[in-house]
C-alpha cells in the first residue's frame, strides 16, 4: 500500500493538512468527532492516518491513554521491624467491554478495569505483596516477570497446595516476593489458552526502580498492544496503551530539552515482533532496564513478544514529531502517534 507505507511522507502531509484535533489537545480539551478532516476525503493519497468517525468514549472505557502515560501505581507502603519496606498492591481481574477504535467494541478481560492494567512501581529490595482477586467469569492468575519462588509464579499446576496456582472466579490469592532485579518488567495472566488470556487484555507494566533511582525525567509508560476483534488469530487494531491512533488526536505533550524516559513494553500477541521508531530524533536504549548504561543510541528498536526496555531522549526543537511501529502494517492499523514538543 503506497500511501501510508512511507511514514515520513505522511508526517510531511500532516504538516500541510491542518488538523483540528490538535487544537483541542493543546487547549487541554478532548479531540472531538469533528476533528477528522480526512473523513470522506479522496484524491491521490491518504492525507492523514486516523479513524473514521471521531474518537472513542474514554469515559465509558473508564481510562484514557493520555492519562495512562503518566499513571504509576505505587501501592501502600510501610516499614517493617527489620527496617525493610513492605509494598502492597491490589489487582482485580474483571470482564469489561471496551472501545478500541471509534465504534468498535471488544469484550476485554482487565486488571482493575483498564487495559493495560495499572503500572505497578516499586523499588529494588522491597518486599512486595500483591493481593489478586478474580472477579472475572474465568479462572486467571498474575504471572510476574522477575525473580521469585515457584509458588509465587502465577502458573496453574504450581502452588495450588498453598492456595496459589490457578485462581478460580471468586477466589483470591496474595503473591509475595522481593522486588528483584531492578528494571522494567511486565505481568500478565498465565492461564491456557495463553494467547487468548493475554490478548484479551490481562497484562501491565511492572517497574522496579534501582536502589538509587534514575535521573529526574518526564516519565511515560507505553504498552504496545493489539486486539483480535474477530477472533481469527490476527490483530485488527494495533495501539500503544489500547486505543489505536489515540496520540494522533491527542499528541503526547513534552517540554523542549527536558529528559524524557519511556518505559516501553511489548504485550502484542499473534505477531512475533513489534517495534518503536521515533522521527527526527535518537534515543538511548536500556534493554529490560536492568543496567544503568545504555547499549545503543538509535531511532528504532525491535521487541519480540513479552520484551521491554527503557528509552531516554531529549527533544531539542519544538514541534510535532511522529512515533510509530516501524512495522508499517501495525502503523497503518493504529500504532502511530505524535509527540508535541512545547517550547
Amino acid at each position: 500500500m503506497g500511501g501510508a507505507a512511507a511514514a515520513p511522507a505522511l508526517a510531511l502531509l500532516h504538516e500541510v493538512v491542518p488538523h483540528q484535533g490538535l487544537h483541542h489537545a493543546l487547549s487541554g480539551g478532548q479531540a472531538s468527532a469533528a476533528g477528522h478532516p480526512g473523513h470522506g476525503g479522496s484524491g491521490g493519497a491518504l492525507a492523514h492516518a486516523s479513524f473514521a468517525g471521531g474518537t472513542v468514549d474514554h469515559r465509558a472505557n473508564g481510562f484514557n491513554p493520555t492519562e495512562i502515560l503518566r499513571d504509576f501505581e505505587h501501592g501502600r507502603t510501610r516499614r517493617m521491624a527489620s527496617g525493610r519496606v513492605l509494598r502492597e498492591f491490589e489487582l482485580v481481574a474483571a470482564d469489561k467491554q471496551i472501545e478500541v477504535a471509534p465504534g468498535v467494541k471488544f469484550d476485554a478481560w482487565t486488571y482493575n478495569g483498564r487495559v493495560p492494567g495499572p503500572t505497578l512501581r516499586c523499588r529494588e529490595g522491597e518486599l512486595l505483596r500483591i493481593r489478586f482477586a478474580n472477579a472475572s467469569a474465568h479462572p486467571h492468575t498474575v504471572h510476574f516477570h522477575g525473580i521469585h519462588p515457584a509458588h509465587m509464579d502465577g502458573v496453574p499446576g504450581v502452588g495450588e497446595r498453598t492456595g496459589g496456582g490457578l485462581i478460580e472466579p471468586g477466589q483470591s490469592y496474595t503473591y509475595e516476593f522481593d522486588a528483584d532485579p531492578f528494571g522494567l518488567h511486565l505481568y500478565h495472566c498465565h492461564v491456557m489458552p495463553l494467547e487468548s488470556h493475554i490478548s484479551k487484555g490481562l497484562y501491565g507494566a511492572f517497574v522496579i526502580d534501582p536502589r538509587r533511582g534514575r535521573p529526574q525525567a518526564d516519565e511515560l509508560v507505553m504498552v504496545m498492544n493489539g486486539f483480535d476483534t474477530n477472533f481469527d488469530a490476527s490483530n485488527e487494531v494495533y495501539a500503544v496503551n489500547t486505543v489505536g491512533f489515540h496520540y494522533m488526536d491527542e499528541p503526547v505533550r513534552v517540554r523542549r530539552g527536558e529528559l524524557v524516559r519511556i518505559y516501553l513494553v511489548n504485550t502484542l500477541e499473534f505477531d512475533p515482533v513489534n517495534s518503536f521508531h521515533i522521527h527526527a530524533n535518537f534515543f538511548h536504549y536500556y534493554p529490560t532496564g536492568t543496567s544503568l548504561e545504555p547499549t545503543e543510541l538509535t531511532a528504532t528498536v525491535v521487541q519480540p513478544q513479552g520484551q521491554r526496555g527503557i528509552l531516554e531522549l531529549r527533544f531539542p526543537k519544538p514541534g510535532r514529531y511522529m512515533f510509530h511501529a516501524h512495522v508499517s502494517e501495525f502503523a497503518q492499523l493504529g500504532w502511530m502517534g505524535f509527540f508535541e514538543v512545547l517550547a
Binding site: 500500500m1 500511501g3 480526512g38 473523513h39 470522506g40 479513524f51 468517525g53 502494517e329 497503518q332 492499523l333
Partner: peptide, 13 residues
Amino acid sequence: AQVIVNDAFVPFT
C-alpha cells in the same frame, strides 16, 4: 464502524 483497505484504516462515508 471502520474500513480497512490492504492493512490500513481508511476514511469513508
